[in-house]
């Protein structure tokens, strides 16, 4: 007997873990923005400037777009691995 406060409803859409290859690829895609922004010394500098923005500022703005792209790519990798079984 479980002591769970709520009994689970019947699984109506069983799913399975991802294939290891897809999982690893998605993991790497997600890790890239984290590593890039964790390395503060690589971007805490003034130049080169862009449209008056010091490097420190425009580089982080750039990562807003890049991180979004990497995350979307990870989503596509996972969705494809599930072959549309996961929606």
């Amino acid at each position: 007997m479980s002591s769970d406060p709520v009994q689970p409803p019947a699984p109506s859409h069983p799913s399975r873990p991802l294939p290891p290859g897809a999982m690893a690829l998605a993991g790497v895609l997600l890790l890239i923005p984290l590593v890039a922004l964790a390395l503060v010394p690589t971007y805490a500098k003034d130049g080169p400037q862009l449209w008056g923005f010091p490097f420190f500022y425009w580089y982080q703005f750039l990562w807003v777009f890049l991180a979004s792209g990497f995350t979307w790519a990870a989503y596509l990798v996972i969705a494809r691995a599930r072959r549309g079984g996961d929606r």
Binding site: L31, P33, L37, A38, Q60, V64, F70, T71, Y75
Partner: peptide
Amino acid sequence: AVPYTIVVYPIIFI
């Protein structure tokens, strides 16, 4: 706040 709200999304994706 900018790197904060960038890295939060790959993290929660996981």
